[in-house]
Amino acid sequence: MIHTSETMYKYLRPDKKFPHVWCAGCGIGIVMGALVRAIERTGFTKDEIVLVSGIGCSGRMSTYLDFNTLHTTHGRALSFATGIKLANPELNIIVVMGDGDATAIGGNHLIHTCRRNIDLTALIINNNIYGMTGGQYSPTTPMECKASTAQYGTIEKPFDICKLVEACGASFVARSTTYHAKMLDAMLSRAIDKKGFSVVEALSQCPVQYGRRNKKGSAVDMMMWYKDNSLSNPAFKKIPPGEVGEQFPVGILVDLDEPDYLERYSQIVKKAGGDRL
């Protein structure tokens, strides 16, 4: 049994960095709680973890959590993290990004990190909007939804982040939501333990910038929507095409055993007659 408040307190920087900037009803705090529980479960010490974040609401997580942290530029967190992993493979690196951060300005880095399959854990908090800058539409804003830069609704097709990273070669892909908080920390534990590039998409409500504009109700209503529209992957696969509607699968979607980048690197070094990485 994990005592939540004690665990949280252990990993936070409560004296220096609070109060936090997240709005009332924001889901990112729930995601941060799940991440802390997941790390607690893996048994790594705080010093064995590096938390790398980009820019945006999600980027603030590296400010509040007491690990080795690197707060980087918008969209580039995975590239910074790749450097850390190459230079010190012993470290466990968790990269926290938002949907705009990871799939718009950082989309290039995301697809190539997948392809490279380097041993990092990416936590992509998807709230379907650029929250911090005032509600502009992002690559995951659903079609026809309103945003401050789409007064009559977006006309661009959104990414399905899990499908995108699966297609690009990530070893482990999972999705959970702020409603499924316990599942989220279980997914994150698995992702951290997984060798290779792991991606966990956490659907997280933004009642202020996304929900309000699109009449999604309160934060609780938005979480209930996650509950009502999510299915396990096997159940989701049984839905006939054309009847999927807004439903989406949660849980582990991809779990492959493939050599990661550093393993392949090590093999090529040996092949070339070298004796170390």
């Binding site: 705009g100 911090m132 800058t133 005032g134 830069t149």
Partner: peptide, 9 residues
């Protein structure tokens, strides 16, 4: 354009 504070408004 792309969102960035404080240009966004």
């Amino acid at each position: 354009a792309y969102p960035i504070t404080p240009q966004t408004h």
